[in-house]
């Protein structure tokens, strides 16, 4: 058997999360250029504020402003920043214990590698435009503040909103805390994953068949059910399905639904029919479109045939079949497909 087929699968979700009263207070503080912790039952101040006391589970609402300066408890140098990181030049991961806090904040530190040390004093550098996100600031060494000039070039202020982009920029928030501004109640937290997706050996034979204009199923052996697309193993007993079988591009509608609802990415104007088609020679139906007839004429038992796209458009995909259309044959007898519903 040939090597399995693989393809990149890039996933991206833009989660929108409600912040609630505790994280909401913290991220509203970030937007306003303030760092908040909260005092828990044993008297310690935790940053960020926990929603509940980690020891007792009591809701926490005793907010305490901390920092803005703090002390590095630990660090790790990141030589090659990745696209998901807040900075695009080498930086350090750091545990920063802000003044007035009893536990550290995990964040990033922009500075020279050789000045990093446990005990280093750091301060936040705030982004010009802040949305109430953890990336509204980065930390920089405090000593840089005392040694740098007050302002490099007032005629050409930094045009980027990346917080660490200009080491000469003033450290205080660009806008003062605004009591009138609404609290931050929602934040977007995008998440991306890149997977190299592998088809199974059996699925790969099926996909290669499609690229040749053939429909390939598989079974455990003669007389056993034919699965299309082929599965790695019989779902009945887990025995590998190693015998490939070509099935016809004609079949019977076993069940169907009429799509009336528009959705993102829809390629056909509703109403249209999505159906299960039991291909002749197969024992499990595949899902496909039924077109070239009014939606209200589609019925269980209707005989249909694949309408293939032009061969020049074929790939390793069931999209090579554009849709199924009625053959005009008499309907299949219910008994012929009742076990395949």
């Amino acid at each position: 058997m040939n090597q399995p087929l693989t393809a990149p699968l890039d996933l991206f979700f833009d989660y929108q999360r409600s912040t609630g009263p505790t994280i909401g207070a913290f991220v509203t503080g970030l937007r306003d250029g303030r760092l908040l912790g909260a005092r828990i039952g044993d008297g310690r101040v935790l940053v960020p504020p926990p929603e509940y006391d980690p020891a007792t589970g009591v809701p926490i609402d005793d907010f305490v402003e901390v920092g803005p300066a703090g002390t590095v408890l630990s660090y790790s140098w990141q030589d090659e920043p990745q696209p998901e990181h807040p900075l695009d030049t080498p930086f350090a991961w750091a545990l920063v214990q802000l003044d007035g806090a009893d536990t550290p904040l995990l964040h990033v530190l922009q500075g020279d590698r050789d000045e990093l040390e446990v005990g280093l004093r750091v301060v936040p550098r705030w982004a010009d435009e802040r949305a109430g996100r953890i990336t509204d600031l980065v930390f920089v060494p405090e000593r840089r503040l005392s040694s740098s000039k007050p302002s490099s070039d007032p005629e050409h202020p930094s045009s980027t909103s990346q917080p660490g982009s200009d080491p000469e920029r003033p450290l205080s928030p660009s806008t003062p805390s605004s009591a009138e501004a609404e609290p931050v109640s929602l934040i977007n937290t995008p998440i991306a994953l890149s997977i190299e997706h592998s088809a199974s050996a059996q699925e790969s034979e099926y996909l290669r068949g499609l690229a040749r204009g053939e429909l390939i199923g598989a079974r455990v052996g003669p007389g056993s059910p034919v699965y299309i697309p082929p599965r790695g193993a019989s779902p009945t007993d887990g025995v590998p399905t190693e015998e490939f079988v070509q099935v016809a591009d004609t079949g019977t509608v076993t069940t169907f639904c009429i799509v009336n609802v528009p959705f993102l990415g829809q390629q056909i104007t509703p109403p249209y029919v999505s159906a299960y088609v039991l291909l002749d020679g197969a024992d499990i139906a595949i899902q496909h479109l039924i077109l070239e007839c009014p939606a209200d004429e589609v019925r269980m038992g209707m005989r249909v045939q694949a309408k293939w796209r032009p061969e020049s458009e074929w790939g390793h995909t069931l999209r090579n079949i554009e849709y199924f259309r009625p053959t005009g044959e008499p309907d299949a007898d219910y008994e012929t497909y009742r076990h395949h519903l």
Binding site: V27, S74, H85, W93, L106, R133, I134, I187, T189
Partner: peptide, 20 residues
Amino acid sequence: PYLVAPLGVADSNLAALQAR
């Protein structure tokens, strides 16, 4: 997912901070 994952921190970054 609110205040840590958006930094893009990887498993080994956390382990490194813990080790130091």
